[in-house]
Amino acid sequence: MGKVRVAGFGVSIDGFGAGPGQSLKDPLGKRGPELFQWYFPTRSFREMHGESGGETGPDNEFGRRAMEGFGAFILGRNMFGPAGDDWGGPNWKGWWGDNPPYHTPTFVLTHHAREPIVMEGGTTFHFVTDGIEAALAQAKAAAGDLDVKIGGGVSTVRQYLLAGAIDELHLAQSPVVLGQGESLFAGIDLPGLGFRVTENVPTEQATHIVLAR
């Protein structure tokens, strides 16, 4: 049985994992893309989008690790589409085009039922309406011996942390201060949940911190 991991999760110095005001125009919230300036120039990011070139080094290595070794993903509702009940319209199939970067079964937490969507490249979106435990059970069954990635957003990561379900977190702390947005750890006692820092790698664009139980 694999682990349950959070990986490549951008966070600001003041602890926000997304900016305020997520919308179709601002999928990561206002100023949210500032949390991923470490990732966008890397070779791993460019290859994921079918492009060549890109930077190598620690940021690239952590970016690569953040998408490898997973047999299933779990996403919150707003990670799949803009907030609201209409999923961005009747033909909405996610932010990523016809070939999303997951390439595995991907389970979307929602209160609004929807039939599974089969995409190119091996991604199938399954919509789970009966809670985080049900989604995790389905994801573990789909992943087999591989890991399950809790892909976000902030609310989803917090729910699985508080449920004691996450084994490892990789945070990429960017040198930006958002001031407002979605706070990742407010009210959460990470040492109390058994986490300790196992890696700490600074780069020009981020500090990569891995915590494990």
Rank of each mutant, 00 (worst) to 15 (best):
V176W: 03
A163L: 10
A137T: 14
L184N: 12
A134F: 01
H208M: 08
V148R: 08
G152T: 09
A134V: 10
Q173T: 08
G131V: 07
A137Y: 03
Q205R: 15
P202S: 14
S174F: 05
P191R: 11
H170I: 08
G187F: 05
Y160T: 06
V148W: 06
G152R: 05
T124Q: 02
V128G: 09
F125W: 11
G144Y: 00
I188Q: 12
L190Y: 01
D145T: 13
V148A: 07
F125A: 06
I132A: 14
P175F: 02
P191K: 13
T207P: 05
Q173L: 02
R196K: 08
F125R: 01
L184R: 12
V157W: 00
T203E: 03
F185Q: 10
F195D: 04
Q173I: 12
T124F: 01
I166G: 01
A206P: 05
N200W: 01
D189I: 13
E168S: 10
R158M: 05
P175T: 02
E168M: 11
A163R: 14
K149P: 04
S183E: 06
A141V: 06
D189Y: 13
A137D: 14
I132Q: 11
G194Y: 02
A165F: 04
G131W: 06
T207D: 04
L184T: 13
A212N: 03
I132F: 05
E182I: 00
V177I: 14
A165P: 01
F127V: 09
E204S: 13
A134K: 15
S155E: 11
T129K: 06
S155H: 11
E204D: 13
Q180I: 05
V176H: 02
N200V: 03
I132G: 12
Q205W: 04
K140C: 03
T203P: 03
V201I: 15
D147H: 11
T156P: 02
R158H: 02
Q205E: 12
A212K: 12
L190R: 06
E199L: 13
T129F: 09
L190D: 07
A135N: 07
L184S: 13
A137H: 05
E204Q: 14
A137G: 13
H170C: 13
L178V: 05
A165T: 01
G194N: 08
A206I: 07
L162I: 07
L136H: 09
G153E: 04
Q205F: 02
A135M: 12
E204R: 12
G131E: 04
E199D: 15
A135V: 12
V176Q: 05
E199T: 15
H170D: 15
A139G: 11
T203M: 03
E204W: 03
I132W: 05
G194C: 09
F127S: 09
L136Y: 14
A135S: 15
K149C: 11
G192V: 14
L211P: 08
A212I: 02
G164F: 06
F127H: 09
S174K: 11
L161Q: 04
G187P: 05
K140E: 07
F127N: 12
D147W: 01
A142C: 07
G194S: 03
E133Q: 14
G153F: 02
V157H: 00
